[in-house]
Design a protein around this nucleic acid. Structure first.
Lengths: 125, 125
DNA sequence: AGAATATATTCAATTTTATGAATATAAAGG
DNA sequence: CCTTTATATTCATAAAATTGAATATATTCT
């Protein structure tokens, strides 16, 4: 029973153990986003983003909301960004890496996002 | 450069994404321990424990100290237990699991440890 | 030096994960 | 109804992680 608890914890960390998934979580920390938006910001194929989103959702880290053709994803819990930041601080101390210590999630330029949802919003202000 | 930062974070989480490694870290949170002690408490083969320790050390999570035949491992940083606890809380909230919310690392009965180091200490108080 | 013992490493086999490519699904609009 | 379009899924392959077995290393003791 203790063993299975550790297995769940390990699964949780596994879901976080991927650079693209971490990037997605950091973006979602700024608010919900649709698949095409994430694909545009990260410059990755839509199908690939969908795969990672499915995994994050399976892990319970994100939820989704449908609106017409779009599917908007958001963090399942508001504590997640704090956990990620704590982990980064911990890693920074462990490795003595100042860059990591002062790491802040990159600020993507939303105004140049080429995703359909963004483009539609821009033309209909 | 941001990409490589995310890769390092992912590697860090990967090191944590394993039930046995998490168990080891929880034990080390209570103080340093030698390989035979860990093997005895967790009832796993010595070679297997050594493998996991090597991985944790490579990830920078633990350090080691040699003393005679024994090698004592300890946490590389005092914040690690807190991070693990935060992660558990986060997972507990996400999954709504009360058991996990109130999870405390199991208390192993050190007095019945059959490892040579412990046995030697018991006979030489 | 040789034996005993705690720990580390290497190797191989299995399983899991990552990822690209292709395709399916579902909603909206004409 | 048919087309378009955003998203999801399936499949195949490559890469990586897991783990058992065997063996190597290093330290202590006689």
């Amino acid at each position: 029973m203790v063993r299975s608890t550790y297995e769940r914890q390990a699964q949780f960390f596994s879901a976080l153990a991927h650079p693209v998934r971490l990037s997605i979580l950091d973006i979602l920390a700024g608010g919900e986003a649709c698949v095409c938006h994430l694909a545009s910001l990260l410059q990755l194929r839509q199908a690939y983003i969908s795969q990672q989103l499915a995994l994050l959702k399976e892990a319970g880290l994100i939820t989704d909301r449908k609106e017409g053709l779009y599917v908007y994803y958001s963090l399942a819990n508001a504590d997640i960004p704090r956990l990620l930041q704590e982990a980064r601080s911990c890693l920074a101390r462990i490795s003595g890496d100042e860059v990591l210590q002062n790491f802040v999630p990159p600020k993507y330029d939303e105004s140049t996002c080429t995703c359909p949802a963004c483009c539609a919003t821009r033309s209909n202000p």
